[in-house]
């Protein structure tokens, strides 16, 4: 039947047939070329791999337990942590063996140690190289630290630094209770809040970052030692001043102490990521 139907149809004029053939050929070749272009990007071009970041918290090796006055700093304060909220921003990755070459992820990440005791998230994608150093900020660089600059999420709004006090955002909220000395019986509160551009905390950590062969991703783990906020280079006594918002000098002291709060390690495996 089919053959019969074809045979009885009026034949197409040769020029129409040529046009149809030309159209189909151009469609086919364009499609194939665009496919090839994609392949080239994947194999030879800017080949980026995801990098995952995980965060954890401790006090000189003991896992951080919130709401418990069990830690002691060098100034002799026994203290707890009740709130730990902060921003990490502008991650920069140094390509190994090429100290002048950095790859930057200019994004801001909100972190809450109490809400997510071990927070894991996708930092972004970085070109496939070996990296030997990672730098970033606790806080926001000036271009981000402006009123209304971050998306209006509940978290960002709660981190806002009031305009009458300079505007922008809190970089860090570290709060808790403390007993000033061993003989003290009544806990007091402390609220180490950092904000304004003078209190930005630049951090650089050495780490050997290579992509995981199996998952084709990088894994970076940052661990914050809370104790470092209270020592090195400045011994900080909470009894002298436990509330520093608006005190530029003390904010700078805490910011300088903050440069060593993180240690980094590459994650060889990415469990459950």
């Amino acid at each position: 039947m089919a053959i019969h139907a074809v045979a009885t149809r009026k034949p197409l004029p040769p020029h129409i047939l040529l046009l149809v053939l030309a159209f189909l050929f151009s469609t086919f070749s364009t499609t194939m070329l665009s496919c090839r272009k994609q392949e080239e990007i994947l194999t030879e071009g800017d080949h980026r791999l995801p990098i995952w970041l995980s965060l954890s918290y401790h006090v000189d090796g003991d896992s951080l337990l919130f709401e418990s006055i069990r830690y002691r700093n060098e100034a002799g304060n026994r203290y707890s942590v009740t709130r730990l909220q902060y921003y990490l921003s502008q991650f920069r990755f140094r390509i190994a063996g090429n100290p002048d070459k950095w790859y930057v992820i200019d994004t801001v990440f909100y972190c809450d140690g109490r809400r997510w005791l071990r927070q894991t998230f996708l930092l972004g994608k970085i070109p496939r190289f070996r990296y030997d150093q990672v730098c970033f900020f606790v806080g926001l660089p000036p271009e981000w630290n402006q009123h209304g600059r971050l998306p209006p999420t509940i978290e960002n709004l709660q981190m806002m630094w009031p305009t009458p006090m300079g505007g922008g955002y809190h970089f860090l909220k570290l709060e808790g209770h403390f007993l000033a000395r061993d003989t003290s019986t009544t806990p007091q509160g402390y609220a180490l809040h950092l904000g304004t551009n003078v209190a930005l905390v630049p951090i650089c950590v050495s780490v050997h970052l290579v992509p995981n062969a199996f998952s084709r991703a990088y894994g970076l783990h940052l661990s914050m030692n809370i104790a470092e906020w209270f020592r090195n280079p400045h011994l900080y006594d909470l009894a002298e001043k436990g509330y520093i918002m608006g005190d530029t000098l003390r904010m700078q002291i805490i910011a300088e102490n903050g440069r060593d709060v993180f240690t980094a390690e590459a994650m060889p495996s990415l469990p459950n990521w």
Binding site: G176, G189, G242, Y243, M245
Partner: peptide
């Protein structure tokens, strides 16, 4: 009242 559980924001003495 300066109770032990007083929120740190209140307890700071600012």
């Amino acid at each position: 009242h300066r109770v032990p559980q007083l929120d740190p924001i209140f307890a700071h003495g600012g």
